[in-house]
Structure formats: C-alpha cells, structure tokens
Simulated scan of single mutants.
Amino acid sequence: MNKKMLFAVLGVAALGLSACSKAAPECTAEVMTKKAQEVGTALQEAVTKDPAKAAELSAKVQEVASKYTGATTSEEACKAYDELLTVIKG
C-alpha cells in the first residue's frame, strides 16, 4: 500500500475514533473498528491485485476522506467507511 493511501485510510480511521463518543446504536466503536479493518484489507488486496490502479485508488480514497473530514458523529464515520469500501471494491 502506498503511503498516501495509508495516510488517507488512517485519517478516516481517526475520524471514526474521534466520533466514538457520539456513537449511534447502529454504529458503535466496535462496528467502526471492524469497518476500518475491512477498508484496510480491501485496499491492500486491491493494490496487490492491480498495482497500476494504486494512484487512481489513492485519489479516490483521499477524496472520500476529505469529504468526511470534520465529521462529528459515528454515523458519518460509518458512512465514510462504507463509501470507501464501495470505492475500493468498485
């Protein structure tokens, strides 16, 4: 995984952790942790499978991460993870 993608994913992970204090019942800290792991795994698999797409995926991941920067609820963090998974698995 290249460093830009890793930082983007970590940024979203931090977003999720910062939102934990306002966790909605359907998006708990445990759910966000699982989603973060899924995103990381999917990203590694995608880059390993097609290294040529790494730059494209990096840009998309950063776009999603930027979209959710400043999110204050766990619900928004879960949406960010779901959107990242969609982008990565695209």
Rank of each mutant, 00 (worst) to 15 (best):
E26D: 10
L43K: 04
S66I: 00
C27G: 04
A55I: 00
T41E: 14
G40M: 15
P51A: 07
A65D: 07
S66P: 00
A52E: 15
T72V: 13
E38K: 07
E26H: 09
S58E: 15
A59F: 04
T41Y: 12
L57S: 03
A19G: 07
A54H: 00
A55D: 11
V47K: 02
L43C: 12
C20V: 12
A71G: 14
A24G: 09
T41F: 12
Q37C: 10
V61L: 01
K79Y: 06
A55T: 04
L57H: 09
E75S: 06
L17V: 14
V64G: 02
A36G: 07
E26Y: 06
C78Q: 14
D50V: 12
V64L: 04
E45Q: 14
Y68H: 05
E38T: 03
S21P: 03
Q44P: 00
K79I: 06
G40T: 14
M32H: 08
T28A: 02
A71C: 10
L57F: 11
E26C: 01
M32P: 06
A65G: 07
P25H: 04
T28G: 04
E26L: 06
Y68K: 01
L84E: 01
E76P: 00
Y81D: 05
K60Q: 15
Q44K: 15
G70N: 05
K79P: 00
S74T: 11
Y68G: 02
K67A: 10
K35W: 11
L43Q: 06
E56D: 14
A23G: 08
A54R: 01
E75L: 09
A55S: 06
D82F: 01
V61S: 00
V31H: 07
T73I: 07
T48C: 07
P51S: 08
K22R: 14
P51G: 10
A29I: 05
A77L: 05
K35Y: 13
S58N: 08
G40I: 11
C27F: 11
T28D: 03
